[in-house]
């Protein structure tokens, strides 16, 4: 009999749930945490009307066709990756049904649906100094007049490649990073975080 597969976060060894309980969020300039095992489904297609309609029928989201933007409806969020590539992200555990529903909706179209949930860890960053902290390792202009909620960008953060998604004006960011770089990036945040009042947030 096959062994049950137990998912393990690449940040599990930091014991973030216990650390968050002890962490003092009052007066924190930056809250950092992990949103573990997020469902991420990569979709490819021409982004035309039929493709958009299929995506809308499954997720309720109007496909963001403007480069580096996001759109959300209910539990589904779509991130632009390229002119023919997007991520549909949603709550952990929903990926299998999402993949099946999207494949069904794309029947007859030149499209691809791949579950990539296992490839990325998601580090969350929010608070008044979150932008400052990111700017220490990112060459993007993160000033609110240039980068704000509804925008996303694939870029570099220190030596890691990331997908940066600003989720609100707090500001809050979701940082998608390859799992093999997650430990490195967390430790980099920890190092930079010595210059800020940092607290760990439970998710």
């Amino acid at each position: 009999m096959a062994e049950a597969y137990t998912r393990r976060s690449p940040l599990q060894h930091f014991g973030l749930t216990a650390a968050a309980a002890k962490s003092n969020a009052a007066g924190a300039e930056v809250l950092i945490g992990e949103s573990a095992h997020r469902a991420i489904v990569n979709i490819r297609g021409d982004g035309g009307e039929a493709f958009k309609a299929a995506v809308r029928s499954v997720t309720g989201v109007d496909l963001p066709v403007k480069p580096n933007t996001t759109a959300q409806a209910g539990a589904f969020r779509i991130l632009w990756l390229g002119p023919t590539e997007w991520w549909v992200v949603t709550t952990s555990g929903a990926e299998e049904k999402l993949v099946a529903d999207l494949r069904q909706a794309f029947i007859g179209q030149h499209a691809a649906v791949i579950d990539v949930s296992e490839s990325r860890a998601v580090i969350t960053l929010s608070g008044t100094k979150a932008r400052d902290m990111l700017a220490r390792g990112c060459s993007l202009d993160l000033h609110p007049r240039v980068f704000g909620p509804g925008q996303c960008a694939q870029t570099g953060l220190t030596k890691a490649n990331i997908m940066l998604d600003q989720t609100d004006a707090a500001p809050s960011f979701d940082i998608y990073v390859l799992k093999s770089f997650a430990d490195y990036l967390w430790q980099w945040f920890w190092l930079i975080g010595r210059d800020y009042k940092l607290a760990i947030k439970a998710h």
């Binding site: 480069p67 580096n68 390229g82 002119p83 060459s139 993007l140 960008a153 870029t155 570099g156």
Partner: peptide
């Protein structure tokens, strides 16, 4: 052409 000005290292 899609993302606008970005640093060379990208």
């Amino acid at each position: 052409p899609h993302c606008g000005p970005r640093d060379e290292h990208e």
